[in-house]
Each structure stands twice: as structure tokens, then as C-alpha cells.
Write a protein that binds this DNA or RNA. Structure first.
Length: 431
DNA sequence: TTTTGAGTTGTTCGA
DNA sequence: GTCGAACAACTCAAA
């Protein structure tokens, strides 16, 4: 990089928007007067909690390779570094002096803090930090009740969300200046140089082929007809606008995408849910928190096939069917009376589509402590769920080869008793 | 301000 | 086998 060109550029910071097309902040940067320096930071604050072969890191890395390949025809490449974000920015500014830095908004508490600090630092150097809405159709402040307070019940939120979408439509920005990048031939570090190892688990491509039948098939885990979309929305390898456009008429599936934004705005407005019950009156549930029982749950050794198949699918693949997630979560919170935070943390470590807001919101839903949650006396019967949703046992047999042999454990507790224990425990805690 | 209707995903029991 | 009611009363959104 010649001295002369080092300051005739703007920077675009990739985070959870790992794509070149229909990327709001990237498009804004490309439309600016100056060529774009594309960059990615492996954030050591986040990496500290992850194993070196975390499959999500491997996925991110593969996508960075793809982006790097896509930049090559434009004579550019991805500037990829690892470190603590503030230190990385000081070091970047020693090499480049961008006229502005562009990034897409991220609404998690950690990300908001990181971005505010980054903005403060950049602005001190006279560099504006420009943020765009990209990962959602509507951000937390955009869908509010008439009194300007956030919704905490899904159905009215969804109605308002749909009303807003219909009144203003999906806003697509036309792709322009696609090649307006800084000429840069920067080698992408390989996995080992970054301190990572390739994971055996893979994020699958998504497919919307069968989504038209979503309302009919969604509860049957054996049909394996899920879209596998969630990790792609998590890491922004596909644009939410593009997906919504494709499922506009499909209310059942669209609702799931609205749930995603519902829980994002809950986390945005009520960041304390990360640690606390949304409904504080549930604070006094005396969780049993038996570690041996928790371990049996994680290993898929409860003796309830629907629960065990789900946990084994999660452990083996990083995915779990949505219906089964409800069953295993309900079993942990209600039957075993283990704090939902334990289950939340386990899912966070294992799920390829892990996202704080959805994971927290749905665990609190299953525990009955969340907004718009299941009533506490609603206790899933894992045997009944199996009978209803996997009647020929294809799903459970797939994940439990020893199902009908002596080596499969018997039920670790009896359903009716556990159900009564759960209801009476909750009932007395609420008094 | 007060009132009213509604609220993701279930299970069990008894008629 | 099917159906409605009970579970326990509560909070929220909107008129």
C-alpha cells in the first residue's frame, strides 16, 4: 500500500453479515466517494469462550475465504486480523487512515458496547463510524406500541410488524459500484495461523424448496424437511430481506422470522433477561440442579427416546429439530427442575445457529419464566410427543441405535410424578 | 381511565 | 375414538 492511497479509502467492517450482496452498510461504503477496504476482526473477547475447533468458527472462516475469492476479480482482498477490538483498531489506523468506517448494526448487549466504544475511538481520530440496519427488517425501536413502549406479547407485535411491512414494503437497495474496492493483495491467514482447527461439524446449505408445506410438516422431526436457514441468518450469509421476499405469502414460516425479531427487540429493550427471569415473580423457584441428572440429559441418556434423540442429534450435528427443542427444554426445566440457564448455556455451546436473543427467549418460554411463555402447568409429556410427532419412531431410531435393546436405559423418572412435582414446585414458588 | 378480550407450539380427565 | 373443560388465575394491548 502506497502512502498516497492509504487515506483515500473507507473501511467496511464485516461482522455477522458475511456476504457481498444486499449488504446495507457495505453498499453504502461502495457508494461513497472512496474505494472500500473490506476487513474482518476475530474478536478475542468472543474467542476466549470457544474451543479452537468450534464449528461456527470454521464456518465463519470458510465464508471469509469465499468472500476473499469473490473480491479477487476486483483486485482486492479481505484484511483479516485477530485481537481485541480496540487494539486492532489502533493498529489498523497505523496502516490505513480511512475517511469513514461502515458497519451493520448488531443489537446484542456486548456488541452495542463494543460498537459504542469503537465509535468513540474512531470519532476521536476524526473518523465517522457509520452504522446501518441490515440483519433485521425492523429493529428494536421501530415496532412499538401506541404508547411508544416495546411489545412483550408476540401476537400484537406480529400484527404491528406485518402492518408496517405492508405499509412500507421491503426496501431493496440496488447493487452499484460492485468493484469499488481498495486494490489490495493481502493473504488470508490460514486456520492454524489464527489458532483454530477445522471442525468436523458442518453448517449445511439452506433450502426453501419445501417451505410451502411448512405449516403441515414442521412438527415432524423425521421428515428432515427443515430449511437449515438459521445459521445463515445468524452469520448473515444470506440477506433477511431476500428470505422474507421469498416467503411473504407463507404466514406460518414468516411468523418464525418475526419471532426472531421479537426476541431480538426483547433483548434490546430488556438486556437483563440474559441473567434474570423476564417475569421476576418466578425468581423463587427452588431449582433442584442435580448435576448427575443434568449430565444424563446432555448425553441423551434419560430413557425418554424423544429427549435422548434430540440431545444426540444436537451433540452429533449441532442441529436439533424445533419441536424436539421444546421437548428437551421442557424436560430439563419441568421434569428435572434444572435452571433454564443451564440448558441455555449447553445449547449456546452446541447449536450451530446459536443466537443469544432466540436462545434466551425460547428457554425462558419453555421454563415459563419468559414473556408470553407457556403457563407453568403446561408440561410436555415426552412419550405423548413421541406418539404424536414420530409415530413410527423413525426419528428416535435414527439417533438411538440401541433403542430396543437392554443397553438403552430405562426412564430416569416417572412422568406423572415428575409432572406433579413440577406443578406443585412452581405453584408454591409463585405464592 | 376503565374495561374487555386475548394469549405459539399441551396434557389429562371424564363424559 | 372424540370432545370440551380444567389446569390458575394473570398480564398485556387496545378500544
Amino acid at each position: 500500500m502506497k502512502e498516497k492511497t492509504a487515506n483515500k479509502m473507507v473501511a467496511f467492517w464485516f461482522r455477522r453479515d458475511l456476504r457481498l450482496d444486499d449488504n446495507r452498510a457495505l453498499q453504502e461504503a461502495l457508494n461513497s466517494e472512496f474505494p472500500v477496504l473490506p476487513l474482518f476482526i476475530f474478536d478475542e473477547e468472543i474467542l476466549a469462550d470457544l474451543p479452537e475447533d468450534d464449528p461456527r468458527l470454521t464456518f465463519i472462516y470458510r465464508r471469509l475465504q469465499l468472500i476473499n475469492d469473490q473480491l479477487r476479480p476486483y483486485g482486492s482482498s479481505l484484511y483479516c486480523v485477530k485481537g481485541k477490538v480496540p487494539e486492532v483498531w489502533s493498529s489498523i489506523l497505523k496502516t490505513f487512515q480511512p475517511k469513514a468506517v461502515y458497519a451493520n448494526e448488531d443489537y446484542e448487549p456486548y456488541a452495542i458496547g463494543r460498537d459504542n466504544k469503537t465509535e468513540q475511538f474512531l470519532v476521536q481520530q476524526g473518523i465517522p463510524f457509520k452504522r446501518c440496519k441490515d440483519q433485521v427488517i425492523f429493529a428494536g425501536r421501530e415496532v412499538l406500541k401506541a404508547d411508544q413502549m416495546p411489545y412483550t406479547v408476540f401476537t400484537p407485535y406480529k400484527n404491528q410488524w406485518l402492518h408496517k411491512l405492508r405499509s412500507q414494503g421491503l426496501e431493496f437497495k440496488k447493487p452499484e459500484n460492485r468493484d469499488h474496492y481498495v486494490k489490495l493483495n493481502w493473504p488470508l491467514p490460514d486456520l492454524a495461523e489464527l489458532g483454530f482447527k477445522a471442525s468436523k461439524l458442518k453448517v449445511r446449505d439452506y433450502s426453501l424448496d419445501k417451505v410451502d408445506n411448512y405449516h403441515k410438516i414442521r412438527d415432524f422431526p423425521t421428515l428432515d424437511q427443515t430449511t437449515y436457514l438459521s445459521p445463515h441468518l445468524r452469520f448473515g450469509t444470506v440477506s433477511i430481506r431476500q428470505i422474507v421476499l421469498q416467503v411473504l405469502e407463507n404466514e406460518a414460516f414468516l411468523s418464525e422470522l418475526i419471532w426472531r425479531e421479537f426476541f431480538m427487540q426483547i433483548l434490546y429493550h430488556f438486556p437483563e433477561v440474559v441473567h434474570n427471569n423476564f417475569k421476576r415473580k418466578y425468581d423463587f423457584i427452588p431449582w433442584r440442579n442435580n448435576e448427575q441428572e443434568f449430565e444424563r440429559w446432555t448425553l441423551g441418556l434419560t430413557g425418554y427416546p424423544m429427549v435422548d434423540a434430540g440431545m444426540r442429534q444436537l451433540n452429533a450435528t449441532g442441529y436439533m429439530h424445533n419441536r424436539v427443542r421444546m421437548v428437551v427444554a421442557g424436560f430439563l426445566c419441568k421434569h428435572l427442575l434444572i435452571d433454564w440457564r443451564w440448558g441455555e448455556a449447553y445449547f449456546a455451546a452446541k447449536l450451530l445457529d446459536y443466537e443469544l436473543s432466540s436462545n434466551n427467549g425460547n428457554w425462558q418460554w419453555a421454563a415459563g419464566t419468559g414473556c408470553d411463555a407457556a403457563p407453568y402447568f403446561r408440561v410436555f409429556n415426552p412419550a405423548e410427543q413421541l406418539r404424536k410427532f414420530d409415530p413410527d419412531k423413525a426419528y428416535v431410531r435414527q439417533w438411538i441405535p440401541e433403542l430396543h435393546t437392554a443397553s438403552y436405559p430405562s426412564e430416569m423418572l416417572e412422568h406423572t410424578q415428575a409432572r406433579e412435582r413440577a406443578i406443585s414446585t412452581y405453584r408454591s414458588a409463585l405464592k
